[in-house]
Every structure is written in C-alpha cells, then in structure tokens.
C-alpha cells in the first residue's frame, strides 16, 4: 500500500510550520532535498533540529544533504481511520539513517505491502507530492 491523501483536507494537514532554527530542514524539503542539521564544531547530527548542539553546546550548524539511505527501526500499519484526510490502511515508518549517525525520521513507506516490512529492512528516499507546494520525503524498499 501507499498512503493516499484526500485533497479536500490539504490545508488541514499538509502545510508544515516550523521554528526559525528548523528552516534548514524545511527549506531543503521545498527543494526536494533531505537535509539534516550537523554541528560545525563537533560533527554531531541532530534531528529534529535544535538551537544548540546537545553534545558540545555549539550553535553553528551546517545543513548536510542526506544520502537518503536508511533502515526500518520501527513501524505501524494504521488500519482504523482517524481522519478522512488519510485513507487506511497505510504504513508509518521510523527510519534510522545509515550515513547520519543517530538520526531517525518519521515518514511513510510507499509501494510496499505491509507484510513485507521487517526490522532493519533497507529503504531509500523518494519524494511524493502531497500538495501543489509540497512534496514530502518518503521511503521505498531499497533496490525495489
């Protein structure tokens, strides 16, 4: 299954809002690039973004484009509708990024049957358009 969006509810759910210190992430998404926050001083990645680095307290950041390679850390298959904006069933995944240590990202798994999902399964990034303005970072089975 893949997540299906109901255009009627676009503005209710699909327009992200963010804090100033998170703009690097969302500006990246706008350009269809997945970028993560990396501390300029100690190299620690942080997601979701922070104001200061939790490790060295530095406040200078780089926004590094991800390779988009990840592994399934956890997931849920949503089978009971909570809002008509999202038709059930659909899969929500927590992806642990391979090249950005300590970074996990919540997203949807697309073009994959629920029964195929397993812990540690390799996945790769793809962008899916959800509104005229926004394509969101999603994942599909690697090599699929």
């Amino acid at each position: 299954m893949s997540i299906e969006y109901n255009p009627k509810y676009m503005k209710h759910f699909y327009d992200p809002v963010w804090e100033n210190f998170e703009s690097g992430f969302w500006q990246g998404i706008k350009q269809r690039k997945l970028k993560f926050q990396k501390c300029s001083a100690c190299g620690t990645f942080s997601h979701p973004p922070r104001v200061r680095c939790a490790k060295c307290k530095g406040d200078a950041w780089e926004w590094v484009e991800s390779s988009g390679k990840g592994r399934i850390y956890s997931w849920t298959v949503v089978r009971q509708e909570v809002h008509p904006a999202f038709r059930v069933p659909f899969e929500v995944v927590l992806v642990e990024m391979v090249n950005e240590p300590g970074v996990r990202l919540v997203s949807n798994l697309v073009d994959c049957e629920a029964s195929e999902i397993s812990f540690g399964m390799p996945v790769e990034l793809c962008f899916r358009e959800v509104t005229k303005e926004w394509a969101l970072p999603m994942f599909r089975k690697a090599g699929g």
Partner: peptide
Amino acid sequence: AIPAEYRYSYYMPFGFASPTMWVAMQAQR
C-alpha cells in the same frame, strides 16, 4: 488539523496523527 505547534509538522503530514499511532511505534520496537 495540524496543531499550530511546530513539532507536529514532523508527524501530521504523514498521517501519523493520534496517540495510538505514536505509542504503537514505540510498542512495536
């Protein structure tokens, strides 16, 4: 709808929108 608080932008657009789903993610792991 997506709440005004910024943190929900990482979840709501993916249909990840209820406490049951959030705890399910932890429970599975």
